[in-house]
Design a protein around this nucleic acid. Structure first.
Length: 207
DNA sequence: CACCGGATTGGCT
DNA sequence: GCCAATCCGGTGT
């Protein structure tokens, strides 16, 4: 366990847990950091979604489908899974569980914390504070997360890591709802695998 | 090798 | 509220 003086970097033990739904909720209130090009930025995780192969039809790895893209998800928990969505947006996921279990958590929204001015400049014309990190594509742009980070370790030795700063989210303050944009996933689309901090203004739209 | 469509966003009607 | 942007993964021929 590494400590930079601010918080504890989450260790492999945390990400290797088997219950991706529990980890998705435990990540709320944790701090996601990026250090790319020597610049540090961070935000508090306020919204997550779980994706769990093989049974989850919304997962890229549904049915344990192994391709060049999904290979990352079959690696041991504690690494980044990044992919390009709609040819434009990089979406950032945390891989969890043991090797060969393709579990992943999409980070959907952050409350900006460190390096807000840098994030604003990366967001260019969309620098309104409430548009900085209130969506999975937005937060990747703000933290400069690209395909370069796909497969990287989250242990603090690379560009992306997650810290525990002691903030605890009361389970009663977590909203559970269906995931966004997975209408194609048939019965899985109704599963309440989206988790948000109640009354937090930084979560993504739609509600 | 052609086709379909997406874990989104922002601009325009 | 509608829809284009823009690339490539996945599937089937």
């Amino acid at each position: 366990m590494k400590d930079n003086g601010m918080g504890r970097v989450l260790s492999a033990d945390f990400f290797m847990q088997d219950d991706v739904l529990a980890i998705s909720q435990a990540l709320l209130g944790k701090h996601l950091y990026s250090k790319v090009g020597g610049v540090t930025t961070s935000g508090i995780i306020v919204e997550t979604e779980a994706y769990r192969a093989p049974e989850d039809k919304a997962s890229h790895a549904y049915g344990n489908r192994r391709t060049k893209r999904t290979a990352t998800m079959f690696l041991p928990g504690g690494i980044c899974y990044v992919y390009l969505c709609y040819g434009i947006h990089h979406l950032f996921n945390v891989v969890t569980g043991a090797a060969e279990k393709a579990h992943a958590i999409l980070i959907r929204a952050l409350e900006p914390c460190v390096g807000i001015e840098v994030m604003q400049s990366r967001r260019q014309q969309h620098r309104k504070p409430d548009e900085l990190t209130s969506g999975p594509g937005k937060l990747s742009q703000a933290l400069d997360i690209t395909m370069q980070q796909n497969g990287q370790l989250l242990d603090g030795s690379q560009h992306i890591w997650i810290e525990d700063h002691g903030q605890v989210i009361d389970p009663e303050h977590i909203i559970r709802s269906p995931r966004v944009g997975v209408d194609y996933a048939e019965e899985c689309a109704a599963w309440n695998w989206r988790f948000r901090i109640k009354d937090n203004s930084w979560t993504s739209k739609p509600d």
